[in-house]
């Protein structure tokens, strides 16, 4: 029986000898690694850009504001009462109450249609209560919850969130995120196929060797091992390359971006791949390398049988 230390030593040896083989014939391997690196750098880079956009919009969130248009039947006094109740809420920073006559007055002064209004028997304007949420609750989700809550009040005719543009941006970003997932899935699949194809060629090149090893009693696991390690090395080097590509691109962009930020009086700077994302990128790449070689090996090894 094989002792564990010998077994481990064998693995180490196969691992290093496959690396040695790759280094000895760099050109064909570099092609595969480059394809992997670029294919993985694309979704990773887009992911970083999206993350940066998210950070920027997070800083813009302070703009949320809810307007409650009250029913005509609501009296000034009732509106005042509602304002007082709202002021006491924890999630609201401040509330402004614009009565029906104030609204009319404001319109008269700003519009120049004063005389036309004189002829009306009744004041057509509703009373409006404008609500500014506190900083803590100033995010899209909470604010939308508040909005739904206010809509149900009996005094309220219409509740409106003055943040549609942000909502649309979020929707676009959500779309972008899904798009990146789709892209990542498709590119991962192509990475899988590229590795699989490279390993398939390697298997064909070593057909005689595989046949001889089978003849003298090599197990499938023994024959598989070097190909799986080759896949592992492809994955690792492809992952490192894609990390370098993303990091380099962010570094190239960071100069112009910080200049732009200065123009907007902001000290914003581009963030690159953090430790966590870097490990995920490497892990994904290695898994794809292993999976690709596993696919090739399990499909093509059985076909090679000694005669």
């Amino acid at each position: 029986m094989i002792s564990p230390t010998v077994y481990l030593a064998r693995h180490m040896q196969v691992m290093l000898s496959t690396l040695g083989q790759m280094i000895r014939s760099p050109m064909s391997n570099l092609m595969t690694i480059a394809v992997m690196g670029i294919a993985l750098a694309l979704p990773a880079g887009l992911h970083i850009i999206l993350k940066n956009v998210q950070q920027v919009t997070a800083q813009w969130d302070g703009a949320a504001q809810i307007s409650l248009f009250l029913k005509q039947s609501v009296t000034d006094k009732q509106a005042e009462q509602l304002t007082t109740i709202l002021r006491q809420r924890q999630d609201i920073k401040s509330v402004t109450n614009i009565t029906r006559s104030e609204a009319l007055e404001e319109f008269r002064q700003n519009s120049g249609f004063g005389e036309a209004l004189e002829s009306l028997e009744e004041n057509p304007f509703p009373a409006v209560i404008v609500i500014y949420p506190t900083e803590q609750s100033d995010n899209l989700l909470t604010v939308q919850g508040m909005l739904a809550n206010f809509k149900d009040r009996p005094e309220v005719e219409l509740a409106q969130l003055d943040m549609q543009w942000l909502k649309r941006l979020y929707a676009i970003m959500d779309f972008g995120r899904r798009g990146i997932w789709v892209l990542a899935a498709m590119l991962s699949l192509s990475v899988l196929l590229v590795v699989g194809n490279t390993i398939r060629l390697a298997i064909q090149n070593r057909r005689d060797e595989i046949e001889i090893i089978k003849l003298i009693g090599g197990t499938d696991a023994f024959i598989r091992r070097p190909f799986l390690y080759t896949g592992f090395w492809y994955g690792l080097s492809g992952g490192i390359l894609s990390w370098l590509l993303v990091t380099l691109s962010i570094w190239l962009l960071s100069g112009p971006v910080s200049q732009l930020a200065t123009l907007y009086d902001s000290d914003y700077s581009l963030s690159s791949l953090d430790l966590n994302s870097s490990f995920i990128l490497l892990g994904l790449s290695i898994s794809l390398g292993l999976a690709g070689s596993w696919l090739a090996v399990s499909r093509h090894l059985h076909a090679i049988e000694p005669e």
């Binding site: 077994y7 064998r10 001889i212």
Partner: peptide, 8 residues
């Protein structure tokens, strides 16, 4: 080769 396969 046969000995490597047997894991000696």
């Amino acid at each position: 080769l046969p000995l490597v396969i047997s894991g000696l």
